Simulated assay, not measured.
Amino acid sequence: MDAGSREEHATKQDRGRVPQVEETRKRSGPRLEGRVALVTGAGRGIGRAIALRLAEDGAAVAVNDIAAHHAAAVREAIASAGGRAVDVPGDISMIEGCQSVTRAAAAALGPVDILVNNAGIEHRARVRDHRAEDWERVLRVNLQGPFLMAQAAADMLAASGRGAIVNIASAAIMGFFGQPAYDASKGGLLTLTRSLATELGREGVRVNAVCPGFIETDMVQGDPEIRQLGERQVRIQPLRRMGLPHEVANAVAWLASDEASYVTGASLFVDGGWSRR
């Protein structure tokens, strides 16, 4: 197939999917009803809020976390609220873990058509003190993990005709003192988002990123250095407070839904205006 034929074929494919999205808008009920979402790192903090919000909007949710008891607790919270969920614990920094988690989610709930890459870790160290093994560990979880999860779920996302990936990046792409691995991993995740959006868009898969600013989570509360940094930064941003996990979850739910059906390759900052100060 030559380039012109491929363009024509892609255009026909895209045209064929528009009525499906338009028909979905006419349905009554929750906006994610009938969808299956897989959320990584969903045991606590922002990931937990995302899993709960997607379930509230009608999606069946596969709850991933490396800590099995955290994943189980979120699954129970969703079930108690009348939702449908399964816990799929596992390490998403390695290909075997990504494939296992994706297969388990599909076996329990059906093919995944929403993937939220939320799992992430942080390591603070100045460049002269930063060990190579810590750099590699951060990039394995924060950048390699989302790539491998997208790879594992790509066929299911494309087959659905309305697949959506939402990557949780960070306002830290602007660059903070003493956390080069974290900042680099999140910057790389934005570039990966745009690359995947370009490649998978022709198969009907949208790929976007959410970039939270300082959010009130256990990580912020438990690290005095991060907490102090956050308190300094919010003093100079337009909305002079830290965000809450559910405010990030709201953005993710919108990007995952058909309400954002013409949005792909975008980076949505949920940071109280910090990046625009």
Score class of each variant (00 low, 15 high):
residue 234 V to E: 05
residue 165 I to L: 07
residue 208 N to P: 03
residue 164 A to T: 12
residue 120 G to M: 08
residue 173 I to P: 00
residue 105 A to T: 12
residue 189 L to Q: 13
residue 52 L to A: 13
residue 31 R to P: 14
residue 246 H to D: 15
residue 17 R to L: 15
residue 232 R to P: 00
residue 260 A to Q: 04
residue 66 I to Q: 11
residue 194 R to T: 07
residue 176 F to S: 06
residue 88 V to C: 14
residue 67 A to I: 01
residue 13 Q to N: 10
residue 188 G to V: 02
residue 192 L to A: 05
residue 36 V to G: 02
residue 202 R to T: 14
residue 41 G to V: 05
residue 123 H to C: 04
residue 187 G to H: 11
residue 183 D to R: 10
residue 194 R to G: 06
residue 258 D to M: 08
residue 137 R to L: 07
residue 131 R to C: 11
residue 156 M to T: 05
residue 119 A to D: 11
residue 162 R to G: 14
residue 210 V to M: 09
residue 237 Q to S: 03
residue 179 Q to Y: 00
residue 272 G to M: 03
residue 255 L to C: 04
residue 37 A to L: 04
residue 267 S to I: 03
residue 276 R to M: 06
residue 35 R to K: 08
residue 183 D to P: 04
residue 219 M to C: 03
residue 169 A to Y: 05
residue 59 A to Q: 11
residue 107 A to F: 00
residue 60 A to I: 08
residue 224 P to N: 14
residue 24 T to A: 14
residue 218 D to T: 10
residue 195 S to Y: 08
residue 39 V to M: 05
residue 78 I to N: 08
residue 125 A to N: 05
residue 189 L to I: 07
residue 239 L to S: 04
residue 124 R to G: 07
residue 263 V to W: 07
residue 186 K to G: 06
residue 20 Q to H: 10
residue 254 W to I: 08
residue 180 P to N: 12
residue 93 S to C: 06
residue 167 N to V: 04
residue 183 D to K: 01
residue 119 A to Y: 09
residue 120 G to K: 10
residue 101 V to P: 01
residue 185 S to V: 01
residue 107 A to S: 15
residue 160 S to Y: 13
residue 196 L to R: 09
residue 260 A to G: 04
residue 152 A to K: 05
residue 275 S to R: 03
residue 263 V to T: 15
residue 123 H to Y: 15
residue 95 I to F: 05
residue 7 E to N: 05
residue 164 A to E: 07
residue 150 A to K: 02
residue 143 L to V: 07
residue 74 V to K: 02
residue 49 A to L: 08
residue 200 L to T: 05
residue 109 L to Y: 12
residue 89 P to F: 11
residue 212 P to N: 13
residue 89 P to D: 12
residue 211 C to D: 03
residue 142 N to P: 00
